[in-house]
Every structure is written in C-alpha cells, then in structure tokens.
C-alpha cells in the first residue's frame, strides 16, 4: 500500500471534492470535449451540442429514476420494454380506441406507471430480487407491446404533437426543457429531502433502515413506479421525435441507461450516487459517440471505446474511493 502516503499528500493539497468521482469524470469529459473539438470544428458548436441533448433526452429521462433505484441497491431492466409498451399504447389508444391524443398521452403515462408499479409491488411484497423481476417483465412488457400491436405501426399524428420532439422552445430543443426540469427536481429530491436520504439508507443497509422505522417498501414502490412513469414519458417524447410507433422501440435502452448511471459514479451495490454524476455520465456517453463519429471513427469502433471507458473510469473512481477510505 505504497500509494497511501501519496493519497495523503494529495488530500492535503487538493480539496476533497475534486477527488469525487463526479468531478473527476467531469474533468475527463471536459478534456475529451476539448480534444474532440480540436479535431473537428463542427463538434463544439451550440447547434450540435443542443442537438445531442435532443437525441439523448429519452435515455436521460429514464436514467434519473434509475439512479434512485440503483442507489437503493436495486435495478430495473424492464425500462426499454416499458418504452415499447407505452409507445404502442399511445398509438393504439389514439387510433383504435379513438382517444383524443392528450388523453392517449395520459393513458400511456398511466400504463408506464402501472408497469413500474407491478415491478415494485412484486419486488417489495413477494421479495423477488429486482434483477429477476425486471428480467421477467423485460420479456413480458415487450411481448405485450408486440401482441397488442400485432406488429403494426401507428402513424399520422397531428402536427402539434411533433412540437415536443422536433421543435425548439426559446432556442432550445423542446424536450430538453423536460429533461432539465426533471434533472433539477430529481437532484433536489435526492439531496434535500427525507425521501432522498431514505434511498441512501436503504442502499447502505436495508435491514438497518427497516429497523430505524423507515418506510422501505413504500419508498421502493414509489421509485419503481416512477421509473415506469418516466419510461412512459420517454416513450411519448420518442414517438413525437420519430413520428411513428413501433413495438420494437426502446430495445436495449436498459443497458444504455445503466451504463450512464454507473459511469456517473452510482455504485451498483447501493448507497452511493448522485444525479449530477448521472448527468455527466449521460453527457459523456452521448458526446463521446457524437465526437468520435464526427472525427471519422465508425460505429463499431465507437462502442468498443465506450465499453473501455466504462470499465476504466469505474476502475479509476473506485481506486480513488478506496484510497480516500484507506486514509
């Protein structure tokens, strides 16, 4: 353990918050941005960055409640399938049931919440581990989306519906406002409320949290429901952006989301994590993909880079963490 004196030295010179995972990550991101920006003049333009925000909103919206869930030591693999199910039900209720579109949107959000609630209720009441429960509903919800839609797409929504997905509001992509609001609200909830502190308590030691009289089951039920609801919202934004519903929408989102959250320093073991870290994680993945593409790196090589970054950054973060704790 020859590193310890070094870490001590570092600790004296560098303020503690600079060694935090999120800060380190943000610095890495900044360096990468400048590097990639230097290689392609079209990368660091406001237009491009805002556009990347537009493209990543759907994943971002889901990553926020996923941060909550992972902080409690849980996981939700069914989010991508909930996106598919909600997208299908949005289209189906509008076209086949003849719901007015606002009602159809409300209905699909409700279905998202209900799907999340089902995950939550089985996880808390029957004590099925979240990983297994959500693997099962990953198949179930996708299957429902396929069965209900019979693989048919729904198209031809009214023009106004495309506003959220495609237009700008005050110079910023409309859906980015949704994401910004969601980020601020989640950050405040996690940082400043009893609810947020309960999440950490559950993640650190669930049994202890129970014995301290914290409403563990209720809190878990809420976050899984919230995860479903946000997946529903994400589905609506996605449909509005791409103008059509398909039953294969959102496939693979779960891995993108989890990668972003974990990259952002949230520990998969629970108890550690911030919304700010998740935001940096999302930005990092999206901008790396975009920046590499603009500098001429192909898609297959890009995912190799993303995978490597995921492992290496977690490695750096956890060794820093251990050094700090080791002191």
């Amino acid at each position: 353990m020859s590193e310890i004196p070094l870490a001590q030295a570092a600790k004296r010179v560098i303020p503690w918050w600079l060694l935090r995972h999120e800060t380190m990550l943000a610095l890495i991101l900044l360096i990468a941005l400048i590097g990639l920006g230097g290689m392609n003049s079209r990368f660091l333009t406001l237009d491009n960055l805002l556009n990347q925000g537009r493209l990543t909103t759907e994943v971002g919206l889901i990553a926020l409640p996923m941060t909550f869930i992972i902080i409690t030591g849980g996981i939700d693999l069914s989010v991508g399938s909930i996106v598919g199910l909600c997208a299908i039900l949005l289209g189906y209720s509008w076209k086949t049931f003849g719901f007015p579109l606002p009602l159809a949107i409300g209905f699909s959000l409700l279905v998202g919440a209900a799907a999340g609630f089902l995950n939550g209720i089985v996880i808390t009441k029957v004590k099925v581990p979240p990983l297994i429960m959500t693997i099962a509903t990953l198949a179930l919800y996708r299957g429902l989306a396929e069965g209900i839609s019979q693989a048919r797409s729904v198209r031809g929504y009214p023009e106004w519906f495309y506003f959220v997905g495609q237009e700008n509001l005050l110079g910023v992509p409309a859906q980015l406002w949704l994401l910004l609001i969601a980020i601020v609200v989640s950050a405040v909830v996690l940082d400043r409320t009893t609810f947020g502190r309960t999440l950490y308590a559950i993640g650190n030691n669930e049994t202890a949290a129970r014995f301290s009289g914290l409403p563990v089951d209720r809190v878990k039920l809420i976050i899984y429901t919230l995860s479903g609801l946000m997946a529903g919202l994400s589905a609506c934004v996605l449909v509005s952006r791409v103008t059509t519903t398909r039953s294969d929408m959102g496939i693979g989102y779960e891995l993108d989301v989890i990668a972003a959250v974990v990259l952002g320093g949230t520990s998969i073991f629970g108890g550690v994590g911030t919304i700010w870290g998740t935001v940096v994680g999302i930005a990092m993945i999206q901008l790396l993909k975009n920046g590499l593409a603009l500098t001429g790196v192909k898609g297959d090589a890009t995912i190799v880079v993303i995978g490597t970054v995921l492992i290496l950054s977690t490695l750096v973060a956890s060794s820093l963490q251990r050094r700090r704790e080791g002191v």
Binding site: I75, L255, I258, A259, V262, S267, I268, F269, G299, D300, A301, T302, I303, V304, I306, G307, T308, L310, I311, T314, L315, S318
Partner: peptide, 16 residues
C-alpha cells in the same frame, strides 16, 4: 469492480 459493470463494458467491446 462490480461484475455488472465489467461485463457490460466487455459486452460492448466484444460486440464492436
């Protein structure tokens, strides 16, 4: 490093 992180990263690396 948690297995889910390592293997998620490896999935990406192998696939690409």
């Amino acid at each position: 490093i948690p297995a889910i992180v390592v293997t998620l990263g490896m999935l990406s690396i192998l696939k690409g």
